[in-house]
């Protein structure tokens, strides 16, 4: 009798707990001490990783240096080539600056302060796409901090603790970012599909959208700076009976291969 009453009490307690958790809404996992779990895991992961990094360091810096001299020569050649290219790019950038000034455009991307971070872990479920990174509020990350790498936008921070942050990838079904087609300036919303592709929604069927068009952030809502690469149009399906076209976008970033990322420090000027 006592045993069954314990069970009933536990069940009622669990049901109440779930109802409270579900009613707190999505992505409020920084509350209720859940962020401290991630924080603890961050420390645990670093401790576990340390001996492997040590061995990898010995391997990479001592054992694996057989062909270093040859590689050094090759890299030197590449470096010289890249220096020439950089000079050319510098010239183009200067020209671009002048044209911008002429058109009274304000330079928007010069004030970016990028914070580097590494990916600690992936989402444990199949459906949701989040990662945990090894930098948090102490490094300048906050809720909605945009996360990117040199290839393009990765996502935004949805929960943060002092030394870790949870990032919602743009491929997650809950992710939506204001975007535009770079060439035609057609605006829409980029949404995650749960798989490795994205969809560009709310673009009218009559708009000019072609396969291969580049999709960038539009800067609306102020969360993401304008002009960051999101992906390329992979497929366009138009139906005369529907108002909006069905546009599939392939992200610039291979989400399954991300290791190093950057966060844009908060307080950076963004376009609106």
């Amino acid at each position: 009798m006592a045993r069954s009453s314990t069970r009933v009490a536990l069940l009622i307690g669990a049901a109440a707990l779930i109802l409270v958790l579900l009613s707190t809404g999505q992505y409020s996992s920084s509350s209720l001490g859940i962020s401290s779990i991630r924080e603890g895991y961050g420390i645990f992961e670093r401790v576990v990783r340390a001996p492997f990094s040590f061995i990898a360091g010995i391997w990479n810096h001592y054992v694996f240096l057989v062909n270093t001299s040859y590689e050094n020569e090759t890299l030197q050649k590449e470096l010289n080539e890249l220096r020439v290219r950089t000079m050319r790019l510098q010239e183009l950038e200067n020209e671009n600056e002048r044209l911008r000034a002429m058109l009274d455009f304000k330079g928007k991307f010069h004030d970016f302060s990028l914070i580097p971070a590494s990916v600690l872990s992936q989402d444990i479920t199949h459906v949701f796409k989040t990662v945990i990174i090894d930098k948090g509020s102490r490094s300048g990350f906050g809720i909605n901090t945009p996360i990117l790498n040199p290839s393009g936008v990765i996502g935004k921070v949805i929960a943060v603790s002092p030394h870790t942050a949870q990032v919602l990838l743009i491929t997650d079904p809950n992710s939506s970012i204001p975007a535009l087609i770079e060439s035609s300036r057609v605006k829409g919303i980029i949404k995650g599909r749960g798989e490795s592709l994205l969809s560009l929604e709310y673009v009218r069927s009559v708009e000019d959208v072609k396969v291969g068009d580049s999709v960038v952030t539009s800067g609306l809502l102020g969360m993401f700076p304008k002009g960051l690469k999101l992906g390329y149009v992979r497929e366009v399906r138009k139906d005369d009976r529907q108002i909006f076209a069905d546009i599939i976008v392939e992200p610039c970033v291979k989400m399954e291969k991300i290791e190093e990322v950057f966060g844009i420090a908060q307080g950076v000027e963004v376009s609106d």
């Binding site: 707990l17 779930i18 109802l19 409270v20 958790l21 579900l22 707190t24 809404g25 999505q26 992505y27 409020s28 996992s29 209720l32 859940i34 962020s35 779990i37 991630r38 895991y41 872990s121 989402d123 444990i124 479920t125 459906v127 949701f128 796409k129 989040t130 945990i132 949805i158 949870q166 919602l168 997650d172 809950n174």
Partner: peptide, 10 residues
């Protein structure tokens, strides 16, 4: 485990 997922809390 919830701390390692983007699923709705609970």
């Amino acid at each position: 485990l919830q701390a390692f997922s983007g699923a709705r809390l609970g």
